[in-house]
Design a binder for these strands. Structure first.
Lengths: 115, 115
DNA sequence: ACCTTGTGTTAGCATTCACTAACGTTAGTG
DNA sequence: CACTAACGTTAGTGAATGCTAACACAAGGT
């Protein structure tokens, strides 16, 4: 039995890694209900705009936010489609976990019949 | 406006960080359909048992796997409840993303009425 | 044109993390 | 009790990453 192809993992890995950082999750929530520029986001936390800019780059590469230019400013907002991909990926994990619950019962049954 | 409480994030952060590592995801899938000891898991990949042991410790601390002793061996298996917590957390993210879709339409409407 | 404002980018540093190697621990066997 | 087998744990190393500081670029106002 193989290890399990991780081709799809690679596609989701970027988005998942982007979500792991707590500050990036906070940024994502911030731009979820309001379209904001990098400066306003930096003011919300206690970090430099540089850090926020890098976080936004990571989120954009992960397809979790989109960028819209408005004069000298660049407004960011969350991208529901990116989160949808993650959702389907994790749904597979849930399905696997259900499989585990089934085997859990079977294991109990075996233990009882062997003792 | 506050940054947004991250009290719940802290609780989920451990599980989420555990899932980010591709090898840990692979281990999780491996112990999802079969109860396995650390040695067998190590044989499935090309890593030492030490690394697998540490990964299992992380997964156990995250509540994603449980340990059952059988003589000198310790059998591991996935823990559906741990994944369920992550699911509810991420469902909040999805809900937030839907909110974004709504605001997206509103932003378009504003832009049309201002131009 | 000059200067201010708002932003992205690069260099360097400190921390974190996954991995290997060596040692300690527990359970079964003679 | 000695010996082996199966795991876990600690120390140490190399790579990845989040952060700040300095620099570069684009747009608008005077």
């Amino acid at each position: 039995m193989g290890v399990g192809a991780t081709a799809r993992d690679d596609a989701t890995d970027i988005a998942l890694r982007a979500l792991v950082e707590p500050r990036r999750r906070a940024i994502l929530r911030l731009v979820a209900d309001t379209e904001l520029p990098a400066g306003a986001i930096a003011d919300a936390f206690e970090v430099t705009r540089t850090a926020v800019s890098q976080h936004l780059t990571v989120l954009r590469d992960a397809g979790l936010v989109t960028e819209r230019r408005d004069g000298t400013r660049r407004l960011y907002r969350a991208r529901p489609e990116g989160l949808a991909e993650l959702r389907s990926f994790l749904d597979d994990m849930w399905a696997t976990s259900l499989l585990t619950a089934k085997n859990l019962v079977e294991a109990d049954r075996e233990r009882q019949s062997e003792s």
